[in-house]
Amino acid sequence: MDTPLIRTVDAWKTYRVEEIEIPAVRGVSLEIAAGEFVAITGASGSGKSTFMHLLGCLDRLDRGRYEFEGRAVERLSRRELAHLRNRRIGFVFQSFNLLARTSIVDNVALPLAYQGVGRRERRRRAASLLERVGLADRLRHQPNQLSGGQQQRVAIARALVTAPAVVLADEPTGNLDTTTSLEIMRLLQEMNREAGVGIVVVTHEPDIAAFALRQVMFRDGQVVRDTASQNPVAA
């Protein structure tokens, strides 16, 4: 069998808030194959977001193992982790996290800057992705001139500009209305099908999770259900 894109074995993460230890992720073992579209669901406080931060190498796990494309993440240096996030992982956040007072095209191009890609080439690639998410006419706009849905499209374009292996989306529709949420999910679904990029969406909304081909449910820091969806929402 192929090496899975993501493989965790008995992953633990505990937060310590004023002497009290709060275990957020308690022994999660999970495999995600390349190109999968997975929804991680669960109530708030179930540890799903923390688990996603671990997957994204934004945080380190306390115990257990995490392999990304077969490499043991816990043994990587900070620099190697930065490299991994830059080349192989794309992020989409609930609050968009775009750089203020910076044009859309430069926002999207930013990850490429850290790869040493020249300014002209960065902008060309950023523009072509913005075109794919339907914002070709907004390149020079600044984030605060766009609607929430448009900003999230920009964030998706930024996540995809480096052609990563997987996009990790943390409550990507949390700040959006229903119609816009569905549009964003359709966009992610489209990218998954056309570009073959893996998508992991963290959400507590069942109708958002319904877009995924596989749903992993968290409760109290553990996986309680892992089901393949027979009828994902059609694009």
């Binding site: 900070r78 490299h83 996030r85 830059n86 992020f91 996290n97 930013l110 850290y114 790869q115 930024r158």
Partner: peptide, 16 residues
């Protein structure tokens, strides 16, 4: 600090 967090998330390393 948030900006730095974002920059690190999308792949900037400390030196950059």
């Amino acid at each position: 600090t948030r900006e730095i967090g974002l920059r690190m998330a999308i792949g900037a390393h400390g030196t950059q």
